[in-house]
Structure formats: C-alpha cells, structure tokens
Design a protein around this nucleic acid. Structure first.
Lengths: 212, 212
DNA sequence: TTTGGAAATGAACATAGGTGAATTTATTTC
DNA sequence: GAAATAAATTCACCTATGTTCATTTCCAAA
C-alpha cells in the first residue's frame, strides 16, 4: 500500500489520550486513520463531557478542517492510532462526483451527526445504546473490520456514556438489560450482535435510517 | 438586488407547512432563504419529533445537498418563505478561500450542529433554551435582522420543544423561570434579551463558544 | 364582531435517569 | 505473579423532566 501514498503524505502515530488536534489551534494537516480509534469532544466548565464524533479506521479526521477554519473541538486518541497525514487544503484530488473518498466521507459524517441529534434529543437510554452499537458495527463492517456478527469496540462505559449523553452507571444498567434480552454481547472490548434486525428496530424505531 | 441574481436562479415561495424537500427525494435545487424560517427534522414511529436544523434568512438550504446525495430528512417551512432557487451542483462560484458565501455557510452549519450535540447530550432545560435563544438572536443580528436586543422569533413553544429535546410543558415552565430571572422576554413571536452576557454564560457554562 | 382552533398556561402526579459511594472484577505494570 | 490502577458493577436514594388533562389566552377567518 505504500506505493499509494501521495507525496507530502506520511505516517504518524498517537498514543491513547494524545491529541490529534486542540481547540482553536489551526490544523495544518488532515489525518486518515489507518488503525485505532479517536474522538472529538467538548467539555463544559463543571466537567460534563460530550463526545461529538468518533473516528474509526478509514475515516478522515477531520473533514471540516478542509473548509478552512481552526478545529472548534479537540480530538484525542482513544487507542493507539496510526494515521496518514496530509496537507490540509482539500487533498486527495477530491472530486465532488466520485462516490467514494473525501466528500463521501464528509457527507457520511454530516449525516451521522444529524442522526445523533435525533438520538440525543428524543431517544431512551436503550435506544441510544442500540444506535451507538449498531452504527459502530456497521462502520467496522464497511471497513472490513467485522467478523460475522462481531467486531472490536475499544470504548469504556465512560466513553459510551459521554457519547450517548448518559451517566456511566446508567450505561451499565442498560447494557445489562440489553444483554438479558439477548440484544448484545459486549465484554472485554469486543461486541457481538446476535440479532441485527432486532437491534436495528430498537435503534431506529421505525424510521428509515441507514447507518453508513 | 435583482441585478445580482445569477442566470438559472429564480424566486420561489412556500407557505407554512409546505415542504422545501422531502426525505429521500433528490433535491434538484438549492435554496437561499430571503425571508422567513424553515426547519429540517426527523419523526420517529411513535410521533416523537426532533428538529435538526433551522434555516433563517440568508441561510443556504441545504448545503449538504450540494454533496450529491438525496436529503435524508424533510425540510418544511415554518412561516411564509421567500427563497432564491438555483441548480444544485455547487453553484455560486464557491471558492474554498472566500471567507463568506457557500462554504462559510456550510462550515457554520456543521459547527452549529456539533454544538447542539453537546447541548442535547449534556445540558439542562434552561441551558438548552439559553443556547437556542442566543443562537437565534446572534444569527438574526448577523443578518441585520436584530434591533438592539430584540428580534423576531416565529417559533411556537412546540417548535422550541422539538428543537431542544424537551416537552412543550417543560419549555413553558422553563421559559417562565427565565422570565422571572430577567433572562429573556419572549412574547407574541418576539424575543428580547435584556442581558446578553448573562444569557451567554448560562448557555455556554464557561466553554468558549461563538454562536456564529 | 363573533367564533373556532391553536397556543400558552396551570396543576397533580409518575418515572427515567442521575448521584454518591462502596464493592468487585479486569487489566497493566513492574 | 503481586501490586497498583482502571473499569465494571451494585445499591439506595433523589430530582429533573415527562405525562395527562383541564383551563385560559391569543389569533385568524368569516
């Protein structure tokens, strides 16, 4: 794959908790995650935290930086991250018509963000978790990182809480209820979804949504 | 201003409740709102609704359509809307470097959306309302539609509830509490903010945020 | 000017999810 | 493989917000 790396592109690594970008500091480069997970978030003054995006292998971090303004939220590695770094200004021969690549990725992330507005604004705890686990599984599968009904899920229950707008205690309670119903298996950073259709129904509640 | 309208651009009108776009039906054109308000939303199967974007005068509706995929959520007029309609594919000589125009507008809407994730995920009812009223006031002011500390706000309390992820009853309670504290005046579709700084502090809770 | 429907308000009660603190189980690290 | 640290789990109790339904106020249409 090395032969596909464009000029001005090089490999970089981050350790867990290391920043890929800090608030208000102009990003000079765009990353494409090769391996590992990262997240964007915002902290409130009293310590409340909300994760606003997750970056998985294959994702660009962060498409919006190409629109030419400094990151308004920090991005931090959740695991060891290996990424391709390239100059920030619309790299990658981004054509609006190509069904893949940068713009596709950007449109996907906009749509996911909009789906999360619905989930955070209107869904119950169990529906939120269903949405999250399903979305992550589908994204991992699209990158060829799912194996049957399973995939890696290197998030702590605290991370999950900060993504779903719940408390860690309630995430724990709710995951147990979901396990009891046979909706998910989740242990030691590994997710299995025994019944995809059931989880989809729970997450979407009848709306037509594709987690892409 | 008529002289500034590009070829292939023409004026269109919508009545309240009329659709500017429907779910999954490819938009053939992009609107720039001249007058009136519209919103994008999603309904769940049991009737819960979440508004995911508001379109005010000056806004493009909807930047994402230019990325070449059908709208995933309907857009409906909240008031009488007058808009400029132009062919959908990246109109407007959109240059990435211009500090205004299409891409600026797009980046703004991405950032607002991300701010709403934080608000819906982590903020209390009063903080949510403060965020909403402040954002709307600032946007109206930037379009020259605010007068001193006041501006039009043609939303019902039901609309506000569907934007903030609350119930109409609780919106009502909370607005009254805010009135009692002298934080806002809101009556007959008109908003006045006696103390901008106080409302900002309540909305942001110490995080550095600009509602742009 | 009336009138009919929408919007706002009010009040009593219910509950999903939050809080705080302790305990147990995993996971690193040396 | 023992110690140290982080993550998950449990429990008792609490509260912000939801629910239901009635009442009042506001407007727009005739």
């Amino acid at each position: 794959m090395l032969s596909q790396i464009a000029p001005n592109t090089n490999l970089v690594f981050f350790r867990p908790h290391e920043f890929l970008a800090r608030e208000n500091i102009m990003a000079d480069s765009l990353f494409q995650i090769q391996e590992g997970w990262a997240c964007r978030y915002r902290m409130l003054a009293d310590g409340r935290r909300q994760i606003t995006a997750l970056y998985l292998p294959g994702d660009y971090c962060e498409p919006q930086w190409a629109l030419g303004r400094p990151p308004s939220q920090p991005v931090v590695a959740l695991t060891i991250v290996r990424a391709l770094k390239s100059p920030c200004r619309l790299p990658l021969g981004a054509s609006l018509d190509s069904p893949h690549g940068f713009w596709k990725s950007f449109a996907d992330s906009c749509e996911r963000q909009s789906n999360w507005l619905v989930t955070l604004g209107r869904k119950t705890a169990m529906e939120r978790l269903a949405h999250l686990l399903l979305e992550l599984f589908e994204r991992m599968r699209q990158s060829g990182l799912a194996y049957g009904q399973q995939c890696a899920l290197p998030l702590t229950q605290l991370d999950i809480a900060d993504m779903t707008g719940l408390t860690p205690v309630h995430v724990n309670r709710t995951l147990q209820a979901m396990r009891a119903k046979g909706l998910v298996e989740l242990q030691s950073k590994w997710l299995r979804i025994p019944d995809l259709a059931a989880l989809r129904e729970l997450a979407a509640l009848g709306t037509v949504e594709t987690f892409a």
